[in-house]
């Protein structure tokens, strides 16, 4: 499978978190261009500690992640009209693909109701579903590899 041609640089990072009475609680993961997947989850609730895991993915997995990103068409969106990050929390999605680099930030999204009520429901919906699909992939990878329950 034409691995060499597909080695366009790809980087993806997602963060969701907030600072509250349990300190800075967050979930973050990144796919690096060399295939390394890093996953960090810090919850201080009930004295939970930081989980930090990393593993190298094969190009096949990176390619599937890229496919999910391109099919979502998130790179065409813009966070200009999305809700600003607030005290309830923030989400960040940073992606480098081809010659495009997005670094979006917005508030937490509770449900589709928040999406519908926003100023850019189409764009925010794409973000909302992409994030869920990415989390789903990452949770499967991390839980299969390490046998821990993410989240």
């Amino acid at each position: 499978m034409a691995a060499a041609e597909e080695e366009n640089e790809f980087y993806l990072r997602y963060y969701v978190g907030h600072k509250g009475k349990f300190g800075h609680e967050f979930l973050e993961f990144e796919f690096r261009p060399d295939g390394k997947l890093r996953y960090a989850n810090n919850s201080n609730y009930k004295n939970d500690t930081m989980i930090r895991k990393e593993v190298f993915l094969t190009p096949a997995v990176l390619k599937e992640c890229k496919r999910i990103v391109s099919e979502s068409e998130i790179m065409k969106e813009d966070d200009k009209k999305w809700p600003e990050p607030d005290r309830v929390g923030r989400q960040e999605l940073e992606i480098v693909m081809g010659n495009e680099h997005i670094s979006f930030a917005t508030s937490k999204i509770g449900s589709l109701v928040d999406v519908q009520g926003s100023e850019d429901p189409e764009g925010l919906r794409i973000f909302y579903y992409l994030v869920q699909d990415l989390k789903c992939l990452v949770f499967s990878l991390i839980s299969l590899h390490f046998k821990i329950k993410p989240i």
């Binding site: 640089e9 261009p33 813009d78 966070d79 600003e84 960040e92 940073e94 480098v96 010659n99 495009e100 680099h101 997005i102 670094s103 979006f104 930030a105 917005t106």
Partner: peptide
Amino acid sequence: AGANGESANRKTKGRG
């Protein structure tokens, strides 16, 4: 962005 020195050619977008 800096890793391959291409940052100048890249289209960037977002609050980040």
